[in-house]
Amino acid sequence: MKQQWTGASLASRFKHRFVYGLIWIGGRFLAYLFLYPLVLVYTLFPSIRRKSRAYIQKRFAPSGFFTFFKHAYKLNLTFARTLTDRAALGILGRADIVSNAKDRTLCQQLADQHRGVIMLTAHCGCWQQAAASLNFFNARKYLVYYRNPKDNDKMVHEHRSQGAPFTFINPASDFGGVVEMMNALHSGGVLCAMGDRTFGSPKNSLAVRFLGGTVRLPYSFYRLAACTGAPVAVMFFPWLGKGRFGAEIADVFTVPDLGPSKEAYLPYAQKFADALETFCVKYPYQFFNYYDFWENVYADPR
């Protein structure tokens, strides 16, 4: 079983710069206007449609080509809008984060326990903006992030030529970055990570049910939670319209130390998958894992 995702951008560096230019000139509105034809042209390419085929089939079960194309276009358009909003946040410094007081209080309570917090999210909604706007956690933030050299999107702080508001931990570094992750949690920090992507050895993943199929999710974060006592907060950041995104806590749980057997942590990975599925039902065009999430999952890599 090989890693299916690459982290490379769908659009070229030039096209990203073009949209950034539109935002500079005419704000978010002008950029949005160009997105409709631009995304349509992109969606006409079979190679682009192929990237979202697995999700669309699982989520919508389209009956024919035109229905499939409609879903692919809407998915790509929402993705383009979230990227535009991310650039607009960086360039113009404007975005509205919608969250409820109960969730904000809960975030702060988790941080105040000084055991660290593992904030698991996924490649859906406006996770990029959220990473730059995690002010509701009053603690130092760490972002587990692998950047493909072919990733052409600028992160929010890069538009402003500022330092990142978080410390990066590269999962491709020595020991998968776990030394830094553990130290971040021990120091009471918030460790933000993607719970929907495996990295490195596929043996460190668990097979869970998701949208009528089986997918593999990373298991390391649950083991980290068990070892350090840090609570896990599953959070998603749906795109709510022009320049607005939500911050929603989908689940919070602690993981007891069940030993090194990965199967013991299956219920926790399933909790994450269930929360993600609920998100995909509520926001059907906001799951941006552009590869076949369901491929090659049946054989246990061990």
């Binding site: 570094s173 020991f175 776990v178 830094e180 130290n183 490195g200 050895s201 298991y219 083991r223 070892c227």
Partner: peptide
Amino acid sequence: LDSLDAVELIMLLQKKYGITIENM
């Protein structure tokens, strides 16, 4: 051993010997 085994090893060293690994 792989990265996830590193978590186990670091925890074992901490529990048995009181040793912490400060950085990479």
